[in-house]
Design a protein around this nucleic acid. Sequence first.
DNA 1: TCATCGCATGAGTCAATATTCATATGATAA
DNA 2: TTATCATATGAATATTGACTCATGCGATGA
Lengths: 121, 121
Amino acid sequence: MIDTSAESCQTACFHPDLVDQVRKTIPGEPLQADLAQLFKVLGDHTRMRILNALYRSELCVCDLTSILGMNQSAVSHQLRVLRDAKIVRSRKQGKNVLYSLDDSHIAELIRIGFEHVQEGR
Amino acid sequence: MIDTSAESCQTACFHPDLVDQVRKTIPGEPLQADLAQLFKVLGDHTRMRILNALYRSELCVCDLTSILGMNQSAVSHQLRVLRDAKIVRSRKQGKNVLYSLDDSHIAELIRIGFEHVQEGR
DNA sequence: TCATCGCATGAGTCAATATTCATATGATAA
DNA sequence: TTATCATATGAATATTGACTCATGCGATGA
């Protein structure tokens, strides 16, 4: 049941027909929440720097620590967030843990995102 | 000048050659910051619901208020964030202000994002 | 087996931000 | 002009989340 009790304009809205149409075709809330969560994880400067590095090559934690110029704990915390969100994957190799982008969607999101921000300059 | 003084592993890292390579080819900091900012704005549940509605049709504020079931002030605040980030555009029509997605990049980011989250189910 | 190295994690702190409430602004219609 | 409607915004509050510090864990090599 759709809640129509929300505060809104008192006359018929501009496009009441469209409102119904949109309500019917919009994705379910859980899916939208997942999508917002994905972008939220992408939307941090440190994590974006990590992803831009991994965009170019699989790297271990100490490589990333060196590239970012940050302390290792901070990098590990952010890698955990990225792993939990299934944005990066990891594999062990000896003492090291190697990280890489999870799949091609992530690379594509970064590429298109760059197109957009570069357009507005 | 690249700061190499950051805490990192003491032996030569796993791929010191790769680290240099990545350092050279990674985008500039301001551009990465812009990209992170773009995703940060996309990464909120309310704003994502707004965008999914606008993905389907141009809509006025009161339409969105009705669709989201939220109070008008909250919707307006988020629309301002989206406008400032150039993710949506607006135009006046009589008393109303009509909002729509800014360009095709935004729609594409949403589409690819959905592909990614649906894959992980 | 024990020390060391690379990485992970829990707690605490501080900053950022989403929402609400109250009110302002600007356009339309009477 | 004045009242009303749709939208915008400032301040206050509450929550979230990034970073640091200290420490834990697991694998390797002596």
